[in-house]
Amino acid sequence: MNASAISAAPEAVGRALSQHRRDVRGSLFRVVLLGSLLVAIGILVTLMVDIVARSLPVWGDRGVVDLISTEISADPARAGIWQAFYGSLILMVFTAAIAFPLGIGAAIYLEEYARDTRTTRIINANIRNLAGVPSIVYGLLGLAIFVKLLGGLTGPSVEGRSIISGGLTLGILVLPIVIITTAEALRAVPSSIREGAIGVGATPWQTIRHHVLPIAAPGIFTGTILSLGRAFGEAAPLLLVGGITTFFSTGDAGFIEVLQGRFSAMPVLVFSWARLPQAEFKALTAALIVIMLIVLLLINATAIYLRNRFEKGVTS
């Protein structure tokens, strides 16, 4: 059909407008995309179902609370995950205490104060590279510095293989991620807001404090809390800096002694239990993984909750 053949007669226009051309490539592309999605979801669902199914024997006679509150033991019938759960919890708090202030501070400096020089760009590129460094490398770093070099401070009675060493290592592990996500959140604040504040005579600090940070806060919280999720799942660096999975007492030691004492963590316990021969431990491992997934979901839910809360604070 060429242009001169176009007719203005209603029936001709109607026929022309209602003929459906078949967009074969477009449909094919769409099917491929949908396929990718289904495969991805399928793998996830398979994993979940498999893990939950394997953990079923445990839930028959023990609940989540029972498992969490029972101490580690070599006897599968009496084994719990208390030290690992508790250890992971303290590690998270420690990691957050190290990585959040340092990372957010560094990001604010890089984004808001540092001049855009060659050095700044090299630093930025390196931070991005650091975020991709395998976690075992951070484990080696932690072993060399916090365990060997500073062992006298981090854990005098356990040769440095303490929660402090583990927490510092995880803190450094997530530091680049915290810096990157915070910097992205800061970069997303429209420059018109900064100009508005600077324009009425605010100092850079007042501008950051009253306008930039409140607007960036939801993004900063989401990013930093999700980075905690990463730290929560790491086993390799903790194995290197001395996470253990045999019985030890968390008894009545004081806070500092606990921090300087030996520790376990949930991913380390997964690693250890998965290698045990007894079938009961296979089920226990699966149950432990289910509990880890629940904790991760809770961490992510917290991030979403905080984001919504702060976003509401900004617009109203």
Partner: peptide, 17 residues
């Protein structure tokens, strides 16, 4: 101090949120 003596209005309205 200079900016405190000079109000500025920008191309696109940019009220603070």
């Amino acid at each position: 101090e200079v900016r405190r003596r000079m109000g500025m209005v920008f191309q696109k309205p940019n009220p603070f949120p």
